[in-house]
């Protein structure tokens, strides 16, 4: 566990120095600030003009928020994982780290942990939208929690695939291109899938599917050829 934290710490220091997370967080917050402003304007204009607020239209407005969240959870991991392993191989860091007490497993889990925690920071910044959905009567609290859980698992699933991709392609451009392709494909599947998740059984099966494949892809990454000297 200590070794995983050492790798995590290193990754975090590097990403903070590159200001990757901070920049993304700022972009994210600006995006949501704009979204809220538009929504509040819509409501205030409605009240000022004594027009009855059409909650169905607000619900449609919120649906855009959900679509954007799915796209974010599927594309954001590219920034953190698509060149995670092969860039270290190119920079000759992996060989030196493996020559210490750190194992391949520590490196993979440490990197995964750092990316996921950074993504969570961004993801939680989007939660006020869902909260607004609840208070405006869009969806219930239980549905909201289900969607949050689903999006978290989906994000971790995409992250594990991107991490795996970064461990099979040596060239950074190739791994980025393949990751983008995977994200597009996964987003489409997710849009289709979300319509069938009203059923609790379907929901549990989907969550289990994601969790099993997260473990599967992390294990495949550990066995990567790029970890050989």
């Amino acid at each position: 566990m200590k070794n995983i934290l050492i790798v995590y710490n290193r990754e975090l220091t590097i990403s903070l120095k590159k200001r990757k997370v901070i920049m993304l967080l700022i972009v994210f917050l600006i995006f949501f600030a704009l979204f809220f402003t538009l929504l509040i304007n819509y409501i205030i204009i409605g009240i000022k003009n004594n027009i009855e607020i059409n909650y169905n239209r607000i619900k449609n407005f919120m649906r855009i928020g959900l679509i954007v969240s799915i796209l974010f959870t599927s594309f954001m991991p590219i920034l953190f994982f698509s060149t995670s392993i092969n860039s270290d191989k190119k920079n000759k860091t992996i060989e030196n780290i493996l020559n210490t007490n750190i194992t391949k497993k520590d490196i993979v889990i440490g990197k995964f942990l750092n990316g996921i925690i950074s993504l969570f920071t961004l993801f939680f910044a989007s939660l006020p939208i869902f909260y607004l959905t609840v208070i405006l009567g869009g969806i219930g609290l239980f549905e909201l929690l289900k969607i949050v859980l689903l999006l978290i698992c989906f994000m971790m699933f995409i992250s594990s695939i991107d991490l795996f991709i970064s461990s099979i392609f040596y060239e950074l451009n190739t791994s980025i291109f393949v990751s983008i392709f995977v994200s597009i494909f996964s987003s489409i599947i997710m849009f289709i899938l979300i319509n069938f998740l009203n059923n609790d059984l379907n929901f549990i099966i989907t969550i289990l599917f994601f969790l099993i494949f997260i473990v599967f892809f992390i294990n495949l990454t550990i066995k990567s050829k790029l970890f050989k000297y």
Partner: peptide
């Protein structure tokens, strides 16, 4: 302990941080 031909690139660390990191790695 092995020193490879090419030195690590894009470390974004000071020399002190580099030593600290590897001391951690060695336990």
């Amino acid at each position: 302990s092995v020193m490879f031909d090419e030195f690590e690139k894009n470390l974004n660390m000071t020399v002190y941080e580099y030593f600290c990191f590897y001391l951690d790695c060695y336990g």
